[in-house]
């Protein structure tokens, strides 16, 4: 009994993905991340919150190692995924090791059919056609709508279907960790709900961990276990998702819910940065 507890404790102590104090510079001059640290435990859903330009997407791209195509570079710190330093890997090796990004704005291959889109996700796999075909059926089971539209050109499907297609495509690589960037962008609330439900499902049934960058703070905190708030390339706050959701400052600045006293914008709270000294 006690030994099981210690095992669980060490598992807790050893994060699946850990980002340690990274700095990212674009074009050698633009400092975008100024020391970001965060951890994703195995099987966790971690939300990365913040306004436009806070550095959420950059953080995800640093993990999936897609920065150098945009002339970005991690200049300090380290990113360790499942015991391996990510910086020494090429993007396709990161995918092969089980960490895949679903990019902002869905980015389906517009001229390919939905099924071809899904199959491109299996590019890095070496475990044979039968296993890939089985996984295709598994993806269709999660997204029945994709099965209906499997022959249509992806560019002509709806936004929600494209988001599902992008997540399904990532699933085809058999990931253990998905970096999900703004899944709610430009989608109707009902579809957003549907997609988040699927994320929770995948997390519980397939044990896929998620690092979720979102502007839709309410939604993200409802489904995540833990949250980090980024501002200007720094983590300014982090905590249990429930604690964050009930935090007065978060409510005021990110959820748009003010206390009862506030009747006019003039009464708005002035922002005080909470310093977070970490790593």
């Amino acid at each position: 009994m006690s030994s099981a507890n210690t095992a669980a404790a060490t598992e807790q102590a050893k994060p699946f993905l850990s980002i340690n104090n990274i700095e990212v510079v674009y074009n050698h001059v633009i400092l975008v991340l100024k020391g970001v640290s965060l951890n994703v435990p195995p099987g966790g859903i971690v939300a990365l919150l913040g306004a436009n330009g806070a550095g959420k997407t950059t953080t995800l791209k640093a993990v999936s190692n897609l920065l150098h195509a945009e002339r970005g570079e991690v200049t300090k710190g380290s990113i360790v995924f499942d015991g391996t330093e990510v910086q020494s890997l090429s993007p396709n090796e990161v995918v092969r090791r089980g960490c895949i990004q679903v990019m902002e704005g869905r980015r389906c291959f517009a001229h390919l059919t939905v099924e071809d889109n899904l199959m491109t996700g299996a590019f890095t796999r070496r475990d044979g056609k039968a296993a890939i075909a089985a996984d295709l059926e598994r993806v269709y089971a999660y997204f029945p709508r994709l099965k209906e539209r499997h022959g249509s050109t992806a560019g002509y499907t709806s936004g929600g279907e494209q988001q599902m297609c992008a997540i399904g495509r990532a699933l085809m690589s058999r990931p253990r960790m998905i970096l999900l960037d703004e899944p709610s962008m430009g989608l109707a609330p009902q579809i957003v709900e549907e997609i988040f439900e699927i994320v929770r499902d995948l997390n519980q049934k397939e044990r896929v961990s998620f690092l979720l960058a979102e502007q839709n703070t309410t939604m993200a905190l409802r489904y995540a276990n833990h949250g980090y708030i980024l501002e200007n390339g720094r983590v300014v706050m982090d905590g249990e998702a429930k604690a964050l959701a009930s935090n007065e400052d978060v409510k005021e600045f990110y959820l748009g819910v003010a206390g009862d006293k506030r009747k006019s914008f003039r009464d708005g709270k002035h922002y005080k940065r909470r310093k977070r000294w970490l790593a």
Partner: peptide, 17 residues
């Protein structure tokens, strides 16, 4: 298929490995 994917979107193709 990968060639056609790259034709559509370099960055997205890179992101799926």
């Amino acid at each position: 298929r990968a060639l056609r994917a790259v034709a559509d979107d370099h960055a997205a193709a890179q992101s799926v490995g």
